[in-house]
C-alpha cells in the first residue's frame, strides 16, 4: 500500500495544517509517513505545495517525483493546474471551485478564470471532483474550515490513503474541544459534496 498526496494552494488557506492532519491520521493508523511543506516567507499569499507520502513500508524521500501523486488536492483551481505535473496518469483530482486571483492578475489586467482552469483539469482524463468550498464554509459559518472540508472530500473519494473515520478520529484528538464540532461537520459536508459529485 502506497499513497502519494499533493496539496496545492495559496499561503494562508490552511494547506500546512491539512497536510499535518492527514499525516497524523496515517501515523495513528500505524503507517509510515513522510511529508514536506512550504513554511516561512513563501507562505505569505504565495503558491504553496505540501507533499504527503503514506505507505506500509519505509519511504525514502519526503518529496515525490513528477507523475507519482495518486491524488492532487487543489485548494485553488490555478494552483491545482500548477501542480498537475506531479499527478500520475489516471490519478484523482479534488479541487475547490473558489479562485484566489493572484495580485499580478489584477495589476496586469490578465483575466484569471477559475472555470477555464477546472475545464483544463477535466480534459486531462481521470477522476475530477469539484468542491464548492465557499458553500460549505457558508453553511458551517467559518472560512477557517475550508481545509478540513476539502480533506473530507478527498477522503470520500477513497484516494487519500486514510479513511474519513480515521480523519474524524484524529480531529477529535488534535483539536481544542470547542473547535471539534464545527470541523467534524465541515469534514462530513466535504465528504457529502464529493459523493454527490461522483454520482
Amino acid at each position: 500500500m502506497k499513497t502519494n498526496l499533493v496539496i496545492a494552494g495559496v499561503g494562508g488557506q490552511g494547506t500546512v495544517l491539512a497536510a499535518k492532519l492527514v499525516a497524523r491520521a496515517a501515523m495513528e493508523a500505524g503507517l509510515c509517513v513522510r511529508t514536506s511543506e512550504t513554511i516561512g516567507m513563501a507562505q505569505r499569499g504565495g503558491s504553496v505545495v505540501s507533499h504527503v507520502r503514506i505507505a506500509d513500508a519505509a519511504i525514502a524521500s519526503p518529496l515525490m517525483p513528477p507523475g507519482s501523486a495518486d491524488t492532487l488536492l487543489g485548494f485553488e483551481p490555478g494552483e491545482a493546474v500548477r501542480s498537475l505535473p506531479l499527478l500520475r496518469p489516471g490519478g484523482t483530482i479534488v479541487v475547490n471551485a473558489h479562485t484566489v486571483a493572484p495580485v499580478a492578475a489584477a495589476l496586469t489586467n490578465t483575466e484569471y478564470n477559475g472555470a477555464a482552469m477546472i475545464d483544463y483539469l477535466g480534459r486531462r482524463g481521470g477522476r475530477l471532483v469539484v468542491v464548492d468550498g465557499d458553500a460549505i464554509c457558508a453553511e458551517i459559518g467559518s472560512p477557517k474550515v475550508l481545509n478540513v472540508a476539502l480533506i473530507g472530500a478527498a477522503a470520500a473519494t477513497g484516494a487519500l490513503g486514510v479513511s474519513l473515520a480515521q480523519i474524524e478520529d484524529t480531529l477529535r484528538k488534535a483539536l481544542r474541544p470547542k473547535l471539534v464540532d464545527m470541523n467534524v461537520k465541515a469534514l462530513h459536508a466535504g465528504a457529502r459534496q464529493a459523493r454527490k459529485e461522483m454520482q
Partner: peptide
C-alpha cells in the same frame, strides 16, 4: 519511461505567477 513525469495532454492555461505578497 516517464522518469521525468507524464506528458500532459495540452499546454496548460496561462498561470500568472504567484509570489508571496504582503497580506
Amino acid at each position: 519511461p516517464n522518469a521525468t513525469g507524464p506528458a500532459l495532454p495540452e499546454a496548460a492555461p496561462t498561470l500568472p505567477a504567484r509570489p508571496p505578497v504582503l497580506c
